[in-house]
């Protein structure tokens, strides 16, 4: 990619961070998972008792399991920013304005994804630091594991960012966008391995878990955090990469076709 194009994309990403994102959202982005970790984590732990959750060769506490899951879950949550940027830019006339400047729709969409990747990584790091006391006994940070976690966060941002971009280009009202995205994200969040393991589930639910892309993102990032990478993790990497590529292409097409 030409340096000038990279420069344009980074400028737009900077603009998104400075101008297009609501600060309250950024606070919520961290506060929401932290509440889950410290409230749901300890409350469910009290209910479950001392029995741990097995992850490959390791058995971890529920709070560790949940904190690691929240890092992946957080990526999905943060990706709503991509759709919100488009909605705000359309409402405030900035979408058209940027397109009459030396920027293309492709640069605009990539800059949105970079923005949510940055938000995803920064908030994941913050959650990791805040949640460390809940999982420090189980965490196994290795040079082999970190890239898996980072990759899961990046590819997850691309998948869910592209997904919300498609929604924002197809749905005509912001109310409709909010209702549909909240409904879908509720499914993604609770029919995934973010909050509980898939082992031992009734088979229809287990199938539902594995048609949910969030499960793959959470599993990969968790495998990285606890250094439990196996063949299944690599298959999950492959599946989510292909899915993200397809959704990204659809999002780009939707944006190009979108009327200004």
């Amino acid at each position: 990619m030409n340096m000038l194009i990279v420069d344009r994309i980074l400028l737009l990403a900077y603009r998104n961070l400075v101008a297009a994102i609501d600060r309250i959202f950024l606070i919520w982005q961290i506060a929401f998972p932290v509440v889950y970790i410290f409230v749901a984590g300890y409350a469910y732990s009290a209910m479950i008792g001392d029995q741990g959750i097995s992850l490959g060769s390791l058995t971890v506490s529920y709070t560790s399991f949940l904190t690691a899951g929240m890092i992946g879950f957080n990526v999905m949550n943060g990706s709503t920013v991509a759709g919100a940027i488009i909605w705000n830019d359309k409402r405030n006339g900035m979408f058209q304005q940027l397109l009459v400047m030396p920027f293309s729709k492709a640069q605009y969409i990539i800059s949105n994804l970079i923005t949510i990747i940055l938000i995803g990584l920064a908030s994941a790091a913050a959650i990791m630091i805040i949640g460390l006391p809940t999982m420090y006994e189980d965490v196994k940070i290795t040079l082999w594991g970190i890239p898996y976690t980072v990759y899961a966060l990046v590819i997850g941002s691309i998948f869910f960012g592209s997904f919300t971009i498609i929604l924002s280009t197809k749905i005509k009202s912001s109310e409709g966008y909010n209702v549909i995205s909240n409904g879908l994200f509720l499914f993604f969040a609770f029919v995934s391995t973010a909050f509980y393991p898939a082992q031992g589930l009734p088979w229809p639910l287990s199938v539902a878990f594995y048609i949910n892309p969030l499960t793959y993102i959470v599993d990969i990032s968790r495998a990285g955090i606890f250094s439990q990478i196996d063949m299944f993790t690599n298959i999950q990497v492959l599946v989510i990469t292909l899915l993200a590529a397809v959704v990204f292409m659809i999002a780009t097409k939707s944006m190009v076709r979108m009327k200004v």
Binding site: D22, N92, G93, M94, Q96, M101, P102, S104
Partner: peptide
């Protein structure tokens, strides 16, 4: 792209960075 670098546009609809 080359032409867009040399033009300015004030659109009919308002455009602004709200925040």
């Amino acid at each position: 792209l080359e032409i867009k670098r040399r033009i300015g546009v004030v659109t009919q609809n308002p455009s602004y960075e709200a925040n």
